[in-house]
Design a protein around this nucleic acid. Structure first.
Lengths: 236, 236
DNA sequence: CTAATATTCAAGTAATCGATTAAAGACTTG
DNA sequence: CAAGTCTTTAATCGATTACTTGAATATTAG
């Protein structure tokens, strides 16, 4: 039935199985690069043009584009054209799940990760972050909490937590007076490995505010099926 | 603050972020090999010795061992020693989730996968497979269904669906008389990319039985939190 | 046509990867 | 402790692949 040279049983089955699993491996291969994972992490917050993506990740435009092609070939991202720009976004929610899954497994089992995370995000939180469940409970009870979105304005516009106010991290220092000193301020950003909220909490605490960080960011909130508010998008 | 040669803002932050995401990428890298994914897929069904794993995947023992070290270094598997053998198993349920997530995303977005899956598992199912929900509904109603586990006996012993009977695929042809002809036979094995159940259904249908395949296997059943029956394990 | 944005190409460097073989380790048993 | 079983490690080879950069090319808008 199969070619005569093969000695083991099921030679064709073996070959077919190998090909199939190699194909699965191609998907993992596309994720097996730190720069591409950074791109995925940014895209989890919404679509981006190549240029912006390049700026946010510190890559050259050409380089970012190449990485995007790798992600696109395996179906992790898709794109749409708008005039001369091209916007990329994650293919669907499952792609984000996969990234979250990957980083959770990594964080749980690898000491290196927590060290590197600490090096990047700053010393271990002086205060425990607020969990999503916590926050929901407190909001429902009507407790005095101010939710602060410290991401760039565009991202806030594209989608934010209900009742959140927007002060991009870069403007935080000079807009401190907009925040109340008698309530707790809960800051959030793009996710657990985004530095914005960490930095914001440090600034606020130094300025004497009662501030904490939400344990993770907008993408996780959305993935949990919680409501997200978007304002009229897609500037001309 | 940071070294003088760096021109861009946040030079240390960049470096730290790069290191962090590179570390995440190492985990994906460990999954980016077809042979290692085959190993993960087998281990999802329970622990295995190196020798057995090698036999089941068609690798040399040394080669299998090397792949296992790669998986172990990133924390995807762990091992225990029993006398002269070493048993490997997946670190925890999240690892299996990740593998399932990976293969789902791959299957959804890549035409290559379905072609290769068909080449390996045989022509597209003549009958739709039975879903887990379907099966549960029918069992609850007390409908006449025979659940057939076609994996090797050891795996059945280590854990199987409630009320399932065990006939390893290799013995199926000569044990056909143990199966009833007036009930539907639902066969299952290690998962959606395991060929056993596909082959079993083909054998049974040819022999005139009313047979279908469960859409996925024991690991998915267990991951769904459904009950699994284990018989006194760990032979001396 | 020009400007703006994105992709592709070519090139170079480096690095990695995977399989095999043989030797070494670890443990058990007699 | 010597022999036997199972597993890991080291060395090697071949080949391939991966990533970045800079220049050239597409694509679209105006």
């Amino acid at each position: 039935m199969s070619r005569p040279g093969e000695s083991s049983r099921e030679p064709d089955g073996r070959r077919a199985k190998t090909a199939l699993f190699d194909e699965f491996a191609r998907l993992a291969q596309a994720l097996a690069n730190g720069r591409r994972l950074e791109i995925v992490d940014v895209l989890a917050n919404g679509e981006r043009t190549v240029e912006r993506l390049a700026a946010e990740t510190g890559l050259s435009v050409a380089n970012a584009s190449q990485h995007l092609q790798v992600l696109r070939e395996v179906g992790l991202v898709r794109r749409r054209r708008d005039g001369t720009r091209i916007y990329y976004e994650l293919r669907d929610a499952e792609v984000f799940d996969m990234w979250r899954n990957l980083r959770n497994v990594a964080a749980q089992h690898r000491a290196e990760i927590s060290q590197l995370a600490e090096a990047y995000l700053g010393a271990r939180d002086s205060l425990e972050p607020v969990t999503r469940a916590d926050l929901l409970r407190r909001l429902k009870r009507g407790e005095d909490v101010v939710l602060l979105d410290v991401r760039p304005t565009e991202e806030f516009t594209a989608g934010h937590l209900p009742a959140a106010i927007s002060i991009p991290l870069a403007e935080l220092r000079r807009r401190l007076r907009e925040l109340p000193r008698d309530k707790e301020v809960v800051a959030y950003c793009r996710g657990p490995y985004c530095a914005f909220a960490h930095k914001a909490v440090r600034i606020l605490q130094q300025a004497g505010f009662h501030a904490r960080r939400l344990e993770d960011g907008l993408p996780e909130w959305r993935a949990a099926g919680l409501p997200v508010i978007a304002m009229g998008e897609r500037r001309s």
